[in-house]
Nucleic acid binder design. Structure first.
Lengths: 179, 179
DNA sequence: CACACGATGTATCGCGCCGATATAATCACC
DNA sequence: GGTGATTATATCGGCGCGATACATCGTGTG
């Protein structure tokens, strides 16, 4: 998740940790925290895995004097890994977070993969919706009033999202037909 | 979080792990996972902290023959702890998960605390909403089309939730006035 | 001019929770 | 009699968060 997001951002340009976090916060801050407590360990993990490397200190040193900035860039393996994570698009996984993060990098995602992601998410939301419907239908009453309220709120929300996804999918399809 | 939920359920009746998980899944499964990988360690944690104890094996043994079920029940300290967690209602914390879990136990929550929780959540959602509005207003264009779509979807959703919370709060108030 | 405050910047620690996995007994059905 | 679902407990590795620490720099305020 974090890995995917970092690789995606570094795909655009080399960056240092603080900037990565700022970009992420700007991009998805409303949906996810992306704290420093994960950022730096993840960067080290990626570095150890050979997916990113520290850029030579010369360039950053030139523009900033002595400064403890560490600028990372993707290695070829890193680019490959990002592409794999993109097309992997494992089923099941399309919870709010993974979907949100993937959507944020949609403009650099191939059209067919975009389609698979949207459809995967739709199936996921539909399952949630069915679960909520069933729970609301079952037992008529007996369930707590507030829980019931929470569930119908959730149901409404999933229904709305399915409609939204349908629009997006239709739009994707019409774009695909044009080409 | 998990701790709060388990104490809340055990407040109703003594239960064993599997049943607790089933109840939680039924109650909030659509919003949270509540996996076994957390359940049993949390139970042990609560036990070590003296908030719950294993019921004497006699009763469960009587009704089930030899069976590896461990039935837990609240200690007085556990009840106290639950009450504390309820009224604590720390500001800031009202993300989706904590709010959802607290709402699930609203029927056993004192009216004034319910009020504080609802208002806390409303402030939290309003802040999220303002962040999204700002992000959408800023830079007019330049931002990715899909991200933009995601943000306006999020904005709509927060606006709807604020309206819902206002209804709930108004309802609470009118109930309070009656008494 | 000093001083404080907020932004820039890297980093670690503890811990909560998840998904995957193991194990085993019981039940229902064919 | 076998096969799979359900009941039931439990551990393991790993991710991500919040809190915290520590430096430097820019900016404004008294």
């Amino acid at each position: 998740m974090f890995e995917f997001a970092l690789l995606g951002l570094l795909h655009e340009a080399p960056m240092h940790g603080y900037e990565l976090r700022k970009r992420l916060h700007d991009l998805l801050g409303a949906f996810r925290a992306f704290s420093y407590g994960s950022l730096y360990p993840t960067l080290r993990r990626l570095q150890r895995a050979g997916l990113i490397v520290e850029e030579g200190p010369e360039e950053s040193a030139l523009s900033w004097g002595r400064r403890a900035r560490k600028v990372y860039k993707l290695t070829p393996e890193g680019k490959e890994r990002f592409a794999d994570l993109l097309s992997e698009a494992g089923p099941q996984t399309w919870d709010d977070d993974s979907f949100g993060v993937h959507l944020a990098f949609f403009s650099r995602t191939p059209a067919d993969v975009r389609m698979r992601i949207l459809e995967g998410r739709r199936r996921w939301v539909e399952e949630r919706r069915e679960g909520l419907r069933e729970r609301l239908a079952r037992t008529g009453e007996q369930i707590d009033r507030y829980t019931r309220e929470l569930h119908s709120q959730g149901l409404e929300s999933t229904e709305r999202e399915v409609r939204w996804l349908n629009e997006l999918i239709a739009h994707e399809q019409s774009e695909q037909d044009e080409q």
